[in-house]
Design a protein around this nucleic acid. Structure first.
Lengths: 118, 118
DNA sequence: CGAGTATATTCGCTGTAGCGAATAAGGAGG
DNA sequence: CCTCCTTATTCGCTACAGCGAATATACTCG
């Protein structure tokens, strides 16, 4: 699988779209129900521009689709595979024992230190 | 799912580790067989330091585990869930139609009842 | 110990993701 | 047309991922 770097890049491109807390929460929200941008801004407590920016990323990779409904735009997941992906990530997130040698929990998107020893 | 931002961050933290072509290929390689660093450098054609750096990322999030064997270090996947994740990403990568009009040419997205402007 | 091999870590650099503020653009209604 | 509402896009900024080169660490063997 992915001997070809190009294929790997495409898969990574998709993974990158998911690799952000806000986008994950957007997808999780959409997994339960379609939503308008305003719904997401209030649900996630972020600026409207920010939500739109994240939605654009998700739209570009095709994880999400948009449909205009009058003045508003309704976003929905584009495939059930996306929901599967979320579920898998959730399982991994809770299931994977944290490296004992490393700090605890996720370090907020920061490169951790740690000297090599296990 | 992930109403709590902290949980979402943890999941995103994992997704972020996967969201790189080289790391994806490393994982794909490991899904078939354990490997030493040198195996990966030759298989992927990258500098040893770079491979080690990527392995560190994967190790930090716990997708991969390392075991010293004499002078070398053997890396293996830490859970079958990781392989599942790869498979899902592969399906998404090939299954999701690339938005052909997105990013090349004028922006287009599905307009529900937009008068045929697009 | 000293030389050689395999891996890990550090460092400086560069590209770019992500953010808020501001602004534009689509659409409804008067 | 003009105003209000919702969403999209642009802009400037900052922080950090990712890279190669260099160096350090761990281990084996003689």
């Amino acid at each position: 699988m992915w001997q070809d770097p190009r294929q790997a890049e495409r898969a990574a491109w998709i993974a990158r779209a998911v690799a952000h807390p806000v986008r994950l929460r957007i997808l999780a929200y959409l997994a339960e129900q379609g939503a308008y941008v305003m719904d997401l801004t209030t649900a996630l407590g972020r600026r409207q521009a920010n939500i739109s920016q994240h939605l654009m990323v998700l739209r570009e990779v095709g994880l999400v689709q948009a449909e205009r409904e009058g003045m508003m735009v309704r976003y929905t997941l584009r495939s059930e595979l996306v929901a599967d992906l979320l579920a898998l990530l959730a399982r991994l997130a809770e299931g994977l024992p944290e490296e004992p040698s490393m700090g605890l929990g996720p370090r907020r998107f920061r490169r951790g230190r740690g000297r090599g020893r296990w």
